[in-house]
Nucleic acid binder design. Structure first.
Lengths: 215, 215
DNA sequence: ACATAACCATACCGGTCGGTATACTTTCAG
DNA sequence: CTGAAAGTATACCGACCGGTATGGTTATGT
């Protein structure tokens, strides 16, 4: 049985990964050669292979890093600006997406990676699915914590709009995609709040429909 | 000024393009070499370059063909099964998408191509945007023809869900994405119909809310 | 002091890439 | 009859690919 060695993240390894992350995201996986990564990271191919074993290993590390960064970004963004279990926290996720996309203008790095890895047995593929599931589950969790009924279904629907907005914004040449998504999701949350308040019992939460911020 | 020569579609050229379309879609653009296309199409590299000029020319032709095929598929699908200006024709587009995805299981070929072409000056990029705009405008047109108010906004929202469903279904490991999308869009259309009927004047159309099929 | 890890520099490997050159055959319209 | 168009077959080109080998330098911790 082969044991997969996790990369030892020395300072140079960090520099390599950060450089590769930018190049992979902005140019695609296959379009970027190992030699070029070495040059732009001010190191050598030797060191890259010493740290990451192969180009596929580096790609996997890139996806892992991007996944972790997105999760951390969204989580802190929402917790800082939408504290407390308001159902309108889901709009905070879309706000986080908007500011993320201002810097990451080439669409979803995971969808882009999927385009090049699908049909292979690449180790990065599970990470792609993991990221999509995490974001979906994050929406569901926010709704459930706010006492919204049918949080599963509603969260999945919001995630649908979320992913669609990224595609329309980048490949679809639709600059207003994110604000369209925000207003649509806003109405979906309204529906959820109405369903929650109508079901009685939890009327103590009714006041937070005023907490809808930023519109 | 350079005149772009459109490919002369001889029988062999058709065979080449059909073969390349499958290979490009299922493996990605850069992952497929010209040599392999020649082999699987039972021809030679020479003929490929005689007909399409370059690999980029072949890629452009592939995107053009895929664009045209999708438009034709959706249009005929909707017109056959949802005749007349019913607002629920938009659900027919999602049905068309579902049966299209049953054969095209690797997601949106245009989003995938975008992942590999973005950041370049490739001639195929405008075709990608064109396809996204076409589908969006098709939704808008169907709603407007059915007398639904604010067809622009509603159509854009439906297109958001449409694109999101493809991503969730493939990269997102969410097998129910399309039925989620259908039920959500169903409710969006319900809203549009209610808004239309409430605005008076066009009450003569009220009966077609019964035309909602396939649920 | 000495080993070990991390790193740099460079040359090299086989393979594949997009693209071209040459030469021969087949088909068909003027 | 003839000549252009279309296609086959094959060899070739330079460039680049992912990956390896060799050998040397620096820093650190025992």
């Amino acid at each position: 049985m082969t044991t997969i060695t996790p990369p030892r993240m020395t300072p140079t390894a960090h520099r390599i990964l950060d450089t590769a992350a930018v190049l992979f995201y902005e140019n695609g996986l296959r379009a970027v050669g190992v030699e070029r990564i070495a040059e732009e990271a001010d190191t050598t191919k030797k060191t890259i292979y010493d740290r990451f074993g192969s180009k596929d290993g580096l790609i996997t590390a890139y996806l892992r890093q991007r996944c972790d960064r997105w999760h951390a970004y969204v989580t802190s963004y929402v917790e800082e600006r939408f504290p407390g279990p308001t159902p309108y926290r889901v709009l905070g996720v879309l706000d986080a997406l908007a500011s993320w996309m201002a810097v990451n203008s080439r669409g979803c790095g995971f969808v882009n990676a999927y385009a090049e890895l699908a049909g292979t047995d690449h180790q990065g593929l599970p990470i792609i699915a993991e990221e999509k599931e995490w974001t979906r589950d994050f929406y569901i969790r926010l709704l459930r914590e706010a006492g919204v009924p049918e949080a599963e279904r509603r969260g999945r629907e919001v995630a649908l709009v979320h992913e669609g907005a990224i595609v329309q914004l980048t490949a679809g040449a639709q600059p207003d995609a994110l604000s369209d998504a925000r207003s649509l999701v806003g109405r979906l949350v309204d529906d959820g709040v109405a369903a929650r308040d109508a079901s009685g019992g939890t009327v103590g939460w009714a006041h937070d429909s005023q907490a809808r911020a930023g519109e």
